[in-house]
Amino acid sequence: TYTFKVDNKDQAKKAAKWAKKLGLSFQIEKHGDTFKITVQ
C-alpha cells in the first residue's frame, strides 16, 4: 500500500490516472486543501 498527499485536484487526477494505468485500486480522500491518495 502506497500513500501520498497532493495539494490540488489536478495532481489527484494525475495520480488516479497513473493508478488506473497500472491496474491498481485507489482511494482519494479530501482533507481541506489537500488530497490523500491510497494506492494498493
Rank of each mutant, 00 (worst) to 15 (best):
K5P: 05
G23L: 03
K14A: 13
W18L: 05
A12N: 01
V39C: 05
V39Q: 00
T1M: 11
D10I: 13
I28L: 06
A12W: 04
I28G: 01
L24D: 00
K14W: 11
K20M: 10
I37E: 00
S25E: 09
K5G: 06
N8G: 10
K13Y: 10
S25T: 11
Q11G: 07
K17M: 12
T3A: 06
Y2W: 14
A16C: 14
D10L: 14
G32N: 07
K36W: 15
D33F: 07
K20C: 14
A16F: 10
Q40V: 11
L24Q: 02
A12M: 09
E29H: 07
K36N: 08
G32F: 05
K5Y: 15
D10H: 14
F4Q: 01
E29I: 09
L24A: 03
K36L: 15
A19M: 14
V6L: 10
A15R: 04
K36H: 13
A16R: 12
T34H: 15
Q40R: 13
A16Q: 08
L24T: 01
D10T: 14
H31N: 11
K13S: 08
D7T: 12
K13F: 09
Y2L: 09
H31D: 15
A15W: 15
K20Q: 10
Q11D: 11
V39D: 00
L22F: 08
F35A: 01
K5R: 09
G23K: 06
Q11V: 07
L24K: 04
G32I: 03
K17G: 06
D7A: 14
V6D: 01
K14S: 07
I37W: 01
G23H: 06
K9D: 06
F35T: 02
N8A: 03
K30I: 08
F35Y: 14
W18M: 05
L24S: 02
K14E: 07
L24P: 00
K14Q: 09
K9S: 08
K14D: 05
A15V: 15
A19G: 02
K36D: 05
Y2F: 12
I28Q: 02
K36S: 12
F35R: 01
G23N: 07
V39M: 06
V6H: 02
F35L: 04
G23Y: 03
D7M: 12
Q40T: 13
A15M: 12
K30G: 05
G32D: 06
K30M: 08
V6P: 01
T38P: 00
T38R: 05
Q40F: 15
G23I: 02
V39W: 05
K13L: 12
G23S: 04
T3Y: 09
K13N: 09
A16Y: 12
G32H: 05
K5L: 15
Q27R: 13
V39F: 08
N8T: 14
T3P: 02
F26W: 06
G32M: 05
T34I: 14
T38H: 06
T1Y: 13
D10V: 12
Q40D: 07
A12K: 03
E29M: 07
K36A: 10
K36G: 03
G32V: 03
K20D: 04
E29T: 12
W18H: 03
Q11I: 07
K9T: 07
D7Q: 13
L22S: 05
K5E: 15
V39L: 09
T1S: 13
I37P: 00
K17V: 09
Q27V: 13
D7G: 12
K30V: 09
A19P: 00
H31Y: 11
T34D: 06
A15K: 03
V39A: 02
E29D: 07
K21D: 06
T34K: 13
V39G: 01
K5V: 15
K36Y: 15
V6Q: 01
K9Y: 14
Q40Y: 15
Q11E: 10
S25P: 07
V6T: 08
Q27S: 13
F26I: 13
I28R: 02
Q27D: 06
S25V: 11
Q11P: 01
A16S: 06
K17R: 13
T1L: 09
D10G: 11
T1H: 10
L24F: 09
F26K: 00
V39K: 00
K5N: 14
L24R: 03
K14Y: 09
